[in-house]
């Protein structure tokens, strides 16, 4: 083939290689996103051929729906609770795992195993741990703290309990990201700090934290998105109950679409969720950019 210029040739081959993945992404990702957004303006019941256009009707109904308002609140509480703790914990774990301590490989594996275990399995295990005669109450009582509640049917404890589970499962995953970041920090920085008399604590805050900032940025965004979309743990552990105390936005979307036959309404709530995630990411990018320190 002949090309008028080298640039055009690169253009052609570049897009040729991209064509197949792009086609797949279009069919399975971009089109469904657009389609779901379009569906949110209809009263869309899969089983009824007549799907009337309702404009913003679904959105207006959403904000009048007390369960949806509760779902937004729960989702925000969930995210605000999990993300900071998770990020700090995984950085802390990575910092320790980066030291030359005995049994390092074992601990790294131990912390990473929850991340690669199916969320269904971990959720079921935690249903038992949180039950009234379960391990958590046993440990608390052994430690002298009187505790006799069922953590998953108590409206006050159900959401924090599921948050704890999520922190436990994903901290190990993000620990690995932080480990990679830590290993990129030149040891000369620490040596220089030591000569200047900085202790471990100071080294951590003044060298480690600023140097892994790009990784932190990645971790925060990924865990924000993950938290906003939390579904499987809720589905298995509490079904959104009791009294919608743990209904999250994703669970609301699922309920309305697949249980109540209301795909339009479900799509509208999914669109709000997408908007929320998008807005949070934009704010983060603007005020906490990855490369400024």
């Amino acid at each position: 083939m002949k090309f008028k210029s080298r640039k055009k040739e690169q253009f052609f081959w570049g897009y040729l290689f991209l064509a197949f993945p792009l086609l797949l992404l279009t069919v399975f990702v971009f089109f469904p996103i657009g389609f779901a957004f379009a569906v949110s303006f209809f009263d869309w019941n899969l089983l009824i051929p007549d799907k009337p256009f309702v404009g913003l009707g679904n959105y207006i109904e959403l904000f009048k729906d007390p369960v949806f308002i509760k779902a937004i609140k729960n989702t925000i509480i969930y995210t605000a609770g999990v993300v900071p703790v998770q990020t700090l914990l995984s950085l802390f774990l990575a910092f320790i795992m980066n030291q030359k301590i005995r049994g390092r490989a074992f601990f790294r594996t131990a912390f990473y195993i929850p991340a690669i275990t199916s969320s269904v399995v971990t959720s079921i295990i935690f249903v038992w741990i949180y039950s009234k005669p379960g391990l958590l109450n046993y440990l608390l009582n052994s430690a002298g703290i009187e505790s006799n509640i069922d953590w998953l049917t108590n409206p006050l404890t159900v959401l924090p309990s599921i948050m704890m589970l999520n922190i436990w499962t994903t901290s190990g995953y993000f620990m690995v990201s932080f480990l990679a970041g830590l290993q990129n920090i030149p040891s000369s920085l620490y040596e220089a700090a030591k000569i200047d008399g900085a202790n471990q604590w100071q080294q951590f805050w003044k060298i480690t934290v600023p140097m892994v900032r790009p990784v932190t940025y990645f971790v925060v965004i990924m865990s924000l998105i993950g938290c906003f979309q939390v579904f499987d743990q809720i589905f298995i552990m509490s079904s959104g109950g009791p009294d919608n105390a743990s209904t999250t936005m994703s669970y609301f979307v699922y309920q309305n679409s697949f249980k109540y036959f209301r795909f339009g309404f479900g799509a509208a709530s999914a669109a709000i969720l997408a908007l929320l995630i998008f807005a949070t990411t934009v704010i983060q990018k603007k005020y906490f950019p990855p490369d400024a320190y």
């Binding site: 369960v67 049917t153 108590n154 409206p155 959104g240 109950g241 009791p242 009294d243 919608n244 309920q255 309305n256 249980k259 109540y260 036959f261």
Partner: peptide, 19 residues
């Protein structure tokens, strides 16, 4: 009734029971 009657009634019962 539409399917959602059940979950809303269930939530009400849980509210009575647990709250």
């Amino acid at each position: 009734m539409q399917e959602r009657w059940f979950d809303d009634s269930q939530a009400a019962m849980q509210g009575i029971f647990y709250k």
